[in-house]
Amino acid sequence: MPLILPLLLAVVLFCIGVYGVLARRNVITLLMSFELMLNAVNLNLVAFDAWRINDATGQTLAVFVITLAAAEIGLGLAIVLLLFRGHGHVDADAARDLAEQDELVEQEKAT
């Protein structure tokens, strides 16, 4: 089996994830896209492990990554819920309370 096959799949998955991160609005969908990206990583790790070394280091790291992803998702969803409580929505691009406040500049100029 050619090594290139899983690698290309990983690349495509990763880029689909990137697309999702940039194109989707709901934070939960963003999290899903991140999962795709992390899976691309795992695919790479497993494929490389199988290709050359075969000492299961890659697989171990893949397992770590899965765990890590779980931790991230857990905290992430907590943050999402918090966001929802505060804002009433979970759209990433609509939470803009913290943007630069232009009226402050005007206020400063006035004094």
Binding site: V27, L30, F34, M37, L82, L83, G86, A95
Partner: peptide, 16 residues
């Protein structure tokens, strides 16, 4: 929550 969300999203992307 907004601050945490922004930091979190960026961080996850960076981790990926």
């Amino acid at each position: 929550s907004e601050g945490a969300m922004k930091a979190f999203l960026v961080s996850v992307l960076s981790t990926a």
